[in-house]
Nucleic acid binder design. Structure first.
Lengths: 234, 234
DNA sequence: TTAATTTGGTGTCTAAATAACACTTAATTT
DNA sequence: AAATTAAGTGTTATTTAGACACCAAATTAA
């Protein structure tokens, strides 16, 4: 194999910003780093890219290691490559975000990484530049969710309108009028109202909805303008 | 220096998608690759990341090598890392796009790279996955320009309303009503009408406008909704 | 010098989307 | 039976978008 002479080669990591939603709040899954440096500190789940895998494959592998989940919605965000970002050796890191159904995760908890969910507005100090990655991921999530129905990836098969609204409110750190909100969501025709109710959160109970998967897939890219005036988007 | 043992290290390239606008059409700056493999084929301008430079620094260096320009608007798009993307040796490439004022470039032409401008809708076959990068860059440009006044980065200090409209039309591959277009652009208050006209493109001549730089910087992130219904955005 | 040609520039009206706003209903608890 | 709690629903005003056509300025041709 010919090579390009005289060029430096670098370690490549993939780090995953894993989002979940517990029915009330947007959460972030963090682990305690298992090796030096910064062993025992809070960190994103990550790992090194292997010789024969693509970046997407690495991201999926790393997510699977922690959560056991496959087929999860993931998206590459950015690559950070400051020469000083890892004190041990220069390492570039490709950040991915993942949107998982937190309930599916809970059946797969692996103690190995001492993982914990943190509220997105109150997570601990992270190693290296991982906090920057989290903030980039939040920004990207807002961007994307204002135009595409991406947040349904965080929900279980059946969910209620109040839950959906809590989710949007937490993502945008804003409050919405529930009449306007449900009208807008329903106007997308992506939801199918169920006959049964979730009675765990209130006396009256809230009707369940299911996502119409076909319409969801067909319309994913069609610019739904779910958030009308997102001043939030920076 | 401690090291992470047993991990593979990779070559990292930065490739630049360089956009320009000649007053009529959106253009792409390509070079003829100067070394094997694929020597002499059309390619994006790129280079390897050096030991002590960040990715942004590498991107700026590479752009400067070709154009002589500094302080140009650049944005990281994505990192491609398929194991087979470079046949010689596994190389990851971080793609950046750059928006330059084509007129400033023209004073800096360096024959070394045999660079040429191509219309964005008619550029030659490119090496490796460079065509994918170009298409990602176009998509990102549309996304960004529908929400932020980013396209002014492509224009000279003085420009006319028809030129600006040609630019938007070429980016979105669409046509707009000129009455609605100028009303919308002017409503942003980003432009200052000049007293003189550009008479090169018509008998009547079109008034020049200048960008109000202060307002531009202040409002860059404030979601201007410049393109109301961008079905185009995928 | 007059007429024709070309491109620039402007205003109104209709339709659609957004935003503000308050009461009733269902079910449980007291 | 009354009180409590959260869910669910409709109307109106305002704003924004979209469709649409004529006049003006300057050069070129007759």
């Amino acid at each position: 194999m010919t090579r390009y002479p005289g060029q430096k080669r670098f370690l490549i990591a993939v780090d995953c910003i894993i989002f979940g939603f517990d029915g009330e709040h947007l959460k972030l899954l963090l682990i305690k780093r298992g090796f030096e440096p910064e062993k025992g500190k809070w960190s994103l789940m990550g790992g090194f890219v292997q010789s024969e895998e693509s970046l997407d494959e690495a991201a999926n592998r790393i997510l699977r290691q922690l959560t056991g989940l496959e087929g999860v919605y993931m998206e590459q965000i950015e690559t950070l490559g400051d020469p000083e970002r890892d004190p041990v050796e220069r390492t570039l890191s490709v950040a991915y975000f993942a949107l998982i159904d937190i309930h599916q995760y809970e059946t797969h908890i692996s103690g190995e990484y001492q993982a914990e969910w943190f509220p997105i507005n109150k997570y601990p100090k992270l190693i290296f530049d991982h906090s920057n990655m989290v903030e980039s991921a939040r920004k990207r999530l807002r961007y994307k969710a204002s135009l595409h129905p991406i947040l349904f990836e965080l929900l279980p098969e059946k969910f209620t309108m109040p839950q959906l609204q809590y989710l949007y409110e937490d993502v945008y750190n804003a409050t919405f009028d529930k009449r306007n909100f449900s009208r807008k969501i329903l106007s997308t025709n992506l939801l199918m109202k169920q006959k049964d109710k979730d009675k765990s959160a209130s006396k009256k109970g809230a009707f369940y909805y299911k996502l119409n998967k076909r319409r969801y897939n067909d319309n994913f890219d069609s610019f739904l303008k779910l958030i009308p005036n997102p001043d939030h988007l920076i």
